[in-house]
Design a protein around this nucleic acid. Structure first.
Lengths: 331, 331
DNA sequence: CTCTATTGTTGGAGCGCTCTAAGGCTGTAG
DNA sequence: CTACAGCCTTAGAGCGCTCCAACAATAGAG
């Protein structure tokens, strides 16, 4: 497994190591004849450049560090997918870590990523204190995804949860609903903006808000609905798709039909929502786009195209399916 | 952003660079006094070792390359999660790529990963020709996940799809079913062993098999069920969970109840299946474990603990939920 | 035919680290 | 007081590459 080096290729092609280096980097200042000879020798030896040695010598990196709080979550997987797409387009590689939503483990993961001197660092919904993020940002460009920050040195990419929920509320109002409840995501990430968006949207329509404590799971959604007993709204805006599906099943168990008796809107547009069996009206969060923008932000910094921090707030969109309809009960 | 080097730390601590190196590597042959001095200097300078320089100098790598055919798929995300867990335990980092299920892109991704001279390479359900895999295996240990291979130089980790489907069939037979159909995954990965498992299990019970062409999507499952019209089996074993959910919704649309009229079993135990709203009986594939075993296989090779190839065939298990019940119609 | 460009090529220093072999120091035995 | 183990410590070569300055070779200008 002792792989050939540039020296070997140079010897075989009868040129200097520096010339091989030029060829490998696609320099134009090499005669066609030599280039062909070098390429041939490289091919024969099965040579390919050593990325780490290259990075060390050139003092540049073609690696982006990515810390995912939790890959188990399909949301992040799709963000990473977007990151990878843009990175690959520009010849960058991803080096990936998870923090398991524990500050201590995240701090370790961060240190490890930084030890590779990445060109940039993307942190997906990190839970470490801002101070740690600021420290990392002193070493390399940092972009935060699904976590906002006021740090002047980092870029952020988030979806506009307030606006997303507003879309849901507006949709329900336009259908004729007035008693619209929100199943809240509690301390979950992005639950706060969604709650704010709900309250603001209700206020803008002159309606009385009703926030019901819940969480980001289907069991949570079901529980919240059961707690509603006796005083059912005509529509529910859930904090996410899982919660919405839980709410729907609890409603059906209680003998109500969705959307005839109660309309339900989710959030995230997970693959779950698209299933014909579920067919959930929901708010689409452009996950892949989140990743693409994050990678783009890093690459801009790497190339020095931009110094000022950028704050992307992506516009979510409403996907209307079969769980929403005009109310039949008196509003 | 010019970060301190070992030289800087050495100067500050008043020792040689080599001594700093020893301290950083946790060598025992350093006096406590010097060690403390070095650590203090490093701390003050905010020094942390340069992983790539270290790797180059020591001719060892603490990086595992991972090529995912498609991160979009939650299955792979969980496998990566398992890989990461084991890698992190052993101080290894993951460098990640996707191949987008295109041989050309996968080949490029492979080359790129190899240019980092990783300690090992995990390929998740790759579609490149075996020859390319063999070539990669000449450079570094390779483990294949969710793809089998006869290559004597690579390890493989798969779930035992034949056995998994057999579990499903056995379960249905024990409930009293005799007319059990299989919705086939076509050319999808792992569809073949599942089909084989179905045929073998039916034969072992002396039952007549019925394979219905379908695919790994909910629309596919629905379509297949509609094609069954008039001659409904009492139970269906789907090629995966999505397919099963599609089948269920088509059954319900046609006025049948699950599991009263027809029992349905899925495969994969995705988060979808666990939803109370779906509550699908399914075969659990230990995805995280798949990743953990893959990482472990690579690390064994790296350490030289093992030379012989290993073929892991993980035992799936049946998760019984609410979509299976004894048949009420005549068998 | 000499002088300056221009183009192509090369040696060598150095990126930040590891590792070997050799050297300095201390303490104890002879 | 010398010798010889340890035990720490260090100089220096080198990992595979990039990049700069210098240089050969050819070409065009005077």
């Amino acid at each position: 497994m002792a792989r050939p080096t540039m020296e070997d290729v140079a010897a075989r092609a009868g040129v200097s190591r520096a010339l091989v280096s030029l060829v490998m980097r696609g320099s134009p200042k090499v005669s066609d004849q030599r280039r062909a000879a070098v390429l041939k020798a490289a091919e024969e030896l099965g040579y390919s450049p050593h990325a780490m040695a290259r990075s060390l010598a050139s003092r540049t990196s073609h690696v982006l560090g990515v810390m995912v709080s939790d890959l188990h979550n399909a949301f992040f997987a799709e963000v990473v997918d977007g990151l990878d797409a843009v990175a690959a387009e520009h010849g960058f590689e991803l080096i990936l870590n998870t923090g398991g939503r524990s500050p201590a483990r995240e701090r370790r993961a961060l240190r490890s990523l930084l030890s590779f001197r990445p060109a940039g660092l993307a942190l997906l919904s990190p839970v470490v204190p801002t101070a740690d993020i600021g420290r990392a940002a002193e070493q390399t460009p940092v972009v935060l995804v699904a976590r906002s920050s006021r740090l002047a040195t980092v870029d952020t990419v988030n979806d506009d949860g307030e606006r997303g929920i507003a879309l849901a509320v507006d949709h329900l109002v336009s259908l004729g609903h007035r008693r619209i409840a929100h199943l809240d995501g509690g301390a979950g990430s992005q639950a706060a903006p969604r709650r704010r968006g709900y309250l603001a949207a209700m206020a803008s329509h002159g309606l009385t808000p009703r926030v019901v404590a819940s969480e980001y799971t289907d069991a949570g959604g079901a529980r919240a609905v059961r707690g509603l007993s006796g005083d059912l709204p005509t529509a529910i805006v859930s904090c996410n798709d899982f919660n919405a599906v839980g709410a729907i099943s609890a409603l059906e168990e209680a003998g109500f039909r969705v959307p005839r008796d109660v309309s339900v809107v989710g959030y995230d547009n997970t693959s779950l929502a698209a299933l014909r069996h579920v067919s959930l009206t929901t708010v689409d969060q452009p996950r892949n786009e989140l990743g693409r923008l994050a990678a783009t932000a890093l690459l801009q910094r790497v190339r020095g195209d931009r110094v000022e921090p950028v704050r992307h707030l992506l516009h979510p969109s409403l996907v209307v399916r079969s769980t929403t309809a005009p109310p039949v009960r008196p509003a």
